[in-house]
Amino acid sequence: MIHIRRDVCGYCGACVSVCPRGALELIDAYLTVDETLCKNKCKICSTVCPLGAIVLEEQ
């Protein structure tokens, strides 16, 4: 599953705009992931992040 490093995230929304499944949402100053939508495969969010705040963890 994807893990959001809240201490690294700049809550900019770049990842939200590229998520092909609409699984990410920026709620005020924190990012959330809907794990029913995210398939943990594409890595697009962790690639695009300007700060490196999203990491994929092995289940």
Binding site: G13, S17, V18, E25
Partner: peptide, 26 residues
């Protein structure tokens, strides 16, 4: 609602930006 463009997506219109066409900025 800016670059995230969630509202339109929820209304059923695809607003997803291709990874190659999203400039990630600092």
């Amino acid at each position: 609602d800016g670059v995230e463009s969630k509202f339109t997506k929820w209304a059923g219109i695809n607003t997803t930006v291709p990874l190659a066409e999203l400039e990630t900025c600092a």
